[in-house]
Design a protein around this nucleic acid. Structure first.
Lengths: 235, 235
DNA sequence: TTGACTATGTGTGTTCTCGCACAGACGCCC
DNA sequence: GGGCGTCTGTGCGAGAACACACATAGTCAA
């Protein structure tokens, strides 16, 4: 169970680096505050910086022409936003939006490109994270296809809570509908059900998870699968 | 328009390597025939070889506990199956099944691991392909969420045809239902519509694309988006 | 306190897909 | 050439999510 206050706010990806490597890179890492709703990249944008969230969350959205959006990846302190730079592509194909305000470490794309051409712990770590993100995207693709809005909302709230390190956070139903790729009314229905069951409480953009364990029962197994996968490569 | 016979059957990923690099790697590449339905990896399997399809197709499936399956990635001559090895993970998390029979080049996982620790054109190429596959998975996630079975079937047939290099191929409705993550009856409906419109013809597992251009009109824009993305990094 | 704005709640009818059940139809093999 | 298995066609009721249309209820600031 999470306490209602933020816990240690440090990017676990960076933290898992050997001390030497961390030291080598730290001059390149600048702390930065990310505000809710801030757009880090639009599709087609040139990526200038990559971000290692501490206690913030960056959502990667696939934008469809129909103006519907769907979250394809969630990046918290277990990851990095802007990964395509490492793969040699400076253009973002997703929209990256700050879904949870907080702090992050920032690195220039130029440095990441250098690191792509230098073998070592950091290079290897980004490789592993690439795989981890790929897993997440695949799993959520299947989840979005087969599971109900109810299940997916529960999963999504848990994932958000994990990354923010708190049981209380600001999010409107409208926002969540853009993440889950459903209508606001659909989110309302599911959220109402969860609230009736006293698993969560919400009001005007503030959500509190009341019973984490039972919420997890309501979520599909995708939650545990994704959690296991993203924890695996971190020590 | 494709002729009804196979065209040059060579993996474009490998073909795009500089001559020197290709020469260096060619001792490690063994041709192998892939039979329809052959399973290259099950989820959890240790990956022993990676595959560079020539005129074959490998589908990456996300298997849900409910026994529904969904294709999350399609690998043809523009790619490689078993990419996670390059990221340092030897265990497959998807099921990889031969969706289109044909030939491929095979390389041992051990060699790929070596290449992950050696900078150069091949390393860089796999980086790029990683990004390309990630794009494909993201795009198809959104497509599966928002677009109708009709649209998706058309898209999928086109993608298959592109990779096989022919307008005629063997596939049952049952099989396609597992790829699109819908019921067989759903595929039947959509396929029937396409057949009535004389865009395709099919009978007992043999499908022919009759009018490629008009079929493309029936498919969602995801087709062009994905095609552009996968062609981009190949020269 | 009052109005404006944002967030949430709810109803109705429609569409898409599902689940199930079964009927034809083609191909292959004994 | 008769039978069997696989592949395809179709109908019907159920349910989930859709689009649209409003109603209510907090919040903030003048």
């Amino acid at each position: 169970m999470h306490p209602n206050v933020r816990r240690s706010a440090v990017n676990r990806l960076l933290a898992s680096l050997p001390r030497e490597e961390h030291k080598r890179l730290s001059p390149e890492l600048k702390p930065i505050a990310l505000a809710f709703g801030e757009v880090l990249y639009e599709p087609g944008d040139t990526i200038k910086h990559v971000y290692f969230p501490n206690d913030s969350i960056v959502s990667l959205l696939s934008a469809m022409p129909e103006r519907s959006t769907l979250e394809v990846g969630m990046v918290g302190n277990e990851g990095m936003a802007g990964l395509s730079v490492f793969a040699g592509v400076n253009v973002s194909l997703t929209r990256a939006i700050v879904q949870g305000a907080g702090s992050a470490m920032r690195m220039t794309a130029a440095v990441v490109r250098q690191e792509a051409n230098r073998l070592g712990p950091f290079h290897q770590l980004l490789h592993r994270y690439t795989h981890s993100l790929q897993s997440q995207v695949s799993q959520s693709a299947a989840c979005n296809r087969f599971h109900s809005v109810n299940d997916r909302l529960a999963r999504w709230l848990l994932m958000t809570s994990d990354r923010l390190g708190t049981d209380e956070f600001r999010l409107t139903q409208e926002f969540m509908s853009n993440m889950l790729g459903v209508r606001r009314e659909g989110v309302n229905q599911s959220a109402g059900t969860l609230q009736s069951a006293k698993l969560i409480r919400y009001s005007r953009g503030m959500i509190t998870i009341l019973n984490r364990r039972r919420l997890q029962v309501n979520a599909c197994e995708c939650y545990s699968i994704m959690k296991a996968e993203s924890d695996q490569y971190l020590n």
